[in-house]
């Protein structure tokens, strides 16, 4: 891995964010439009709905080398697909207990609601999640053997 931040010596967390297309992805766009700055540690994967994000995808992300995962959907009641964000929330709660059980620090996986009008909140969440994962250091628990 020739990560640029690594070549400079400082370790920077690598975070995968699964954002729903209708609210959170739009919120991330708005952060840009409003020029709110946040650390370049997050790679966004656009999904139609947070309800599309199965526990499998989160585990796979950690297995592929992500130090942290963020899942964000529409606020309760605002889901473009009626109820997908509730399913996401429930699945996530279960997964989080499982991850704790196998020794993955709870702060590595994060769930939040961000609406299309919350650019500033997105930047804030991105910054907070980065800080949280930075404190934990690199994730090793689920890492795929190379």
């Amino acid at each position: 891995m020739n990560d640029i931040s690594k070549s400079k010596g400082a370790w920077e967390p690598k975070i995968i964010a699964f954002l729903c297309n209708w609210c959170s992805y739009a919120g991330a766009d708005l952060a840009g439009v409003s020029r709110y700055q946040y650390p370049p540690s997050i790679r966004i994967v656009r999904v139609p709905c947070s309800g599309r994000v199965s526990p499998n995808l989160i585990l796979d992300a950690l297995r592929s080398g992500a130090d942290g995962v963020l899942v964000s959907g529409c606020h309760p009641g605002d889901c473009h697909y009626i109820s997908g964000n509730y399913y996401a929330r429930r699945r996530f709660a279960l997964l989080k207990r499982f991850l704790e059980f196998v020794g993955v620090e709870p702060d590595r996986v994060n769930f939040t609601w961000i609406s299309a009008s919350e650019g500033e909140q997105f930047a804030q969440v991105a910054t907070e999640v980065t800080e949280r994962v930075r404190k934990l250091g690199p994730a090793t628990h689920l890492l795929k053997e190379f």
Binding site: M1, D3, K14, I16, V45, S64, A66
Partner: peptide, 12 residues
Amino acid sequence: IMAAVEAAMEDF
């Protein structure tokens, strides 16, 4: 989706 995630990790 995993292809995208794995690609992200390849050189991140």
